[in-house]
Nucleic acid binder design. Structure first.
Length: 215
DNA sequence: CACCAGGCAAGTA
DNA sequence: TACTTGCATGGT
């Protein structure tokens, strides 16, 4: 990694923060809701996720035990607005089964684990990949780990800060090696990248003809 | 009508 | 290992 890449990230953060201000992510009332949202928002617009979470609230399905008790078909209907509802109902079940078996449904107990040990365990749950695991660790668990998503990749590659083929973990390491390990910084930076990432067109590889945001 | 959204797992060669 | 495909609703 180059020194210039490090300073570019810090510069980008300063500009985004000055322009948009604090985002106060994750938008949720509790760590429980953060985890639900992290699974439901996979490749899905957040507005649809809020509808699904509203359904869960109305049905009073707001605990580890409730998720495990409700039939998967009913759970699927409740989360239907978030798309991929059959898959996501299973994924919610998978995570809360994992939480039940290993930590007696106690999130605080789970978060006493070492960050990277827990990350590996989360990745072993079917339906939890790198971004979902890191979102849970950062925004529900308060661990200083950086969340990488499609916008993060898109912005960095468009501005030629990283090559096209850079992996998730490489991008994550770039941020974590460049920035102070500050929880609020990690939370805000990821949120700001999502905000501005929506302004980038999706075409590959270098989005010929598409304007870049002035970072 | 087409395209996209805060991914991930499973199948194929 | 390196691609490809299925999953699916709702907004623009």
């Amino acid at each position: 990694m180059t020194v210039s890449a490090e300073s570019r990230l810090i510069e980008i953060y300063q500009r985004l923060y000055q322009h948009f201000g604090p985002q106060n992510w994750w938008p949720a009332d509790s760590p429980f809701e953060v985890i639900i949202g992290a699974i439901l928002t996979q490749n899905t617009a957040w507005d649809n996720v809020t509808k699904a979470i509203e359904n869960l609230k109305k049905a009073n399905v707001l605990s580890c035990e409730a998720i495990l008790d409700i039939p998967v078909e009913k759970l699927a209907q409740l989360v239907r607005p978030s798309g991929y509802f059959n898959q996501k109902a299973k994924r919610l079940k998978n995570f809360y089964y994992f939480l039940s078996e290993n930590y007696s449904c106690d999130l605080k107990a789970m978060f006493t684990e070492n960050m990277y040990v827990l990350r590996k365990k989360l990745l072993s749950v079917k339906g939890i990949g790198p971004e979902t695991a890191d979102s849970i660790l950062l925004y529900a668990g308060g661990f200083p780990i950086f969340v990488v998503d499609t916008y993060t990749y898109r912005i960095l590659s468009r501005h030629n800060i990283i090559p096209e083929e850079t992996s998730y973990e490489e991008i994550q390491a770039l941020f974590m090696d460049s920035l102070d390990k500050d929880l609020d910084l990690f939370k805000e930076f990821h949120a700001l990248l999502v905000m501005t990432g929506k302004n980038y067109c999706r075409k590959k590889p270098r989005c010929e003809g598409c304007p870049l945001v002035d970072l």
